[in-house]
Write a protein that binds this DNA or RNA. Structure first.
Lengths: 288, 288
DNA sequence: GCATTAATTAGACTATCGGTATAAACTATT
DNA sequence: AATAGTTTATACCGATAGTCTAATTAATGC
């Protein structure tokens, strides 16, 4: 029974790789797997659900191969990281995941959309974590945006390579090049700049409904307000009160809130509450 | 008569922006434009051809706006470049071009594929040329790969931003950040490395049929061989003869050719024929 | 004003798509 | 052997891109 499911997945898998998701019809899958339509819909409720199963399967394969590559190697080995990253990129290339991703982003299949979003999310955090192993400790706040740049460069570079040549280039070479480029940014960034993306940009879940998030922001602002009541934080207190009233008004003026948020964050710089204030600001950004 | 065409394009345009290309049906366009099916197919042979017309129209708008932005400004103004680049990125975002691009890459509509490839091609060369204005002369060989990285970083960064927030971020801010990062690579690259992508990577047209290209490579190798006949280039001559015989054999061993090409290029370094040899190698890469 | 030509219309039609429904045939377990 | 679960073949639904036709309307030349 599970064998039948496997049989369907394998047929669909092969077809998606060969012709792409959109151009593979259910009938193609039925023919290839040698089954009837009813059987297919016994195991999957839709073509999209079948795709999801394949993607999940592929992800497990990626994890497995990455673990194998790490066996007996140091955690800060750049070579291992490059090969690990290549595993996913090769899979994505082979499965035309980017095409699927973009195609799906307009469909109304919220489940599939959430699934792919989560996958992308997880992958970026994995890369970010691995970069943390390769980078000096001071570069920690920049690993997320470096992960983003690494993927962006590598992906687009491969794309352009194919634009000019029929021959595939080694994924590892592309990733190694991208990594070298990205690494060269660290020094300048540490010296001159704040991170572009907050370290926890992807941590705070965001499913479109921001009412819960808004409540949380308001609650934390109130908590912070009480905390600084006795101390001499009069300016900061003003910011908090303004933000609270504006957030809870019927028509919050977002442009005002945005502006005040920045001043608010600055006002707490180099105080004991800097981290707490910064966290509130990051959350507040998301509801605007 | 041309007014009718315009009328259809405008309706379709609006719908593609609102619902995306794939989810807009011909019927939607007919309803919106208030025309009959026959009329639509009088002006366009397919939905894809209609899309192509819109893309061409958008491209003209982009060019126009970019020209306007440049009026009275210096050619090396970074601010102008950032805003010019943002024009296309905003258009692409608005028209969900990336989704279309990926969707189309599997279809059998060779015309549309070639059209979009050409657009991407042209855009990268435009960015590359503009980077040449901003960069020091020595960075010239790196402008193409910097263009690729710039687009890759900016695109992916915007994508990830949306992954974590509902609020749009300013395209200009993202591009400015990407540009700052990319610029910081120049020094290290000039000092240590050869360009990853040859400067003319996109110049040599490549439409899948490489027989003409192959003939050209062979012809140029022969010419080079004659040129160095009287001089003391015995090692180089060996390489050329090997490449010629291997290229013209029934089953060219690509891995061998690849390896020899690198040695071949090196052998001409710091000679008067360095440039010529390098050009041949770049062409040869494309036929493998 | 009239006649010819071109453009436009509504709608029938094809084939394919994803997905549903059903009744019969098959398989496994008890 | 009886029951329950699976699989099959097939008909069906609404929607899709695209074709075709016959009738209507608009533009053109004389």
């Amino acid at each position: 029974m599970n064998a039948k499911r496997k049989q369907i997945i394998e047929a669909a898998h092969q077809l998606f790789v060969d012709k792409g998701f959109a151009l593979t019809s259910i009938q193609d899958i039925l023919d290839k797997a040698g089954i009837a339509k009813g059987t297919f819909y016994n195991y999957f409720n839709s073509k999209n659900e079948c795709l999801r199963a394949i993607l999940a399967f592929v992800s497990e394969e990626v994890d497995q191969k990455r673990r194998e590559l790490a066996i007996g190697k140091e955690v800060d080995s750049e070579e291992v990281f490059v090969r690990q990253m290549a595993v996913r990129m090769n899979m994505n290339k082979q499965h035309h995941i980017f095409a699927v991703f973009e195609t799906v982003s307009f469909s109304d299949d919220v489940e599939l959309k959430a699934f792919m979003k989560k996958q992308h999310h997880t992958e970026l955090q994995w890369i970010s974590k691995r970069l943390g192993c390769l980078y000096p400790p001071k570069a920690r706040p920049y690993t997320l945006e470096h992960a983003v740049m690494l993927v962006g460069i590598a992906h687009h570079l491969m794309h352009v390579w194919k634009l000019g040549s029929n021959k595939d280039i080694s994924t590892e070479k592309v990733i190694q090049y991208a990594l070298t480029r990205v690494k060269s940014m660290i020094k300048e960034q540490i010296e001159n700049e704040k991170p572009f993306l907050p370290e926890n940009w992807l941590d705070i879940t965001n499913d479109g409904d921001t009412t819960d998030l808004k409540k949380e922001v308001i609650a934390q602002l109130n908590r912070l307000s009480n905390k600084i009541n006795e101390k001499g934080f009069s300016k900061q207190q003003d910011y908090i009160q303004f933000l609270l009233s504006e957030l809870q008004s019927d028509n919050p003026r977002t442009f005002l809130i945005e502006s005040v948020l920045m001043s608010f964050e600055q006002a707490f710089e180099q105080t004991e509450l800097e981290h707490e204030a910064s966290h509130i600001v990051k959350m507040a950004w998301k509801i605007m």
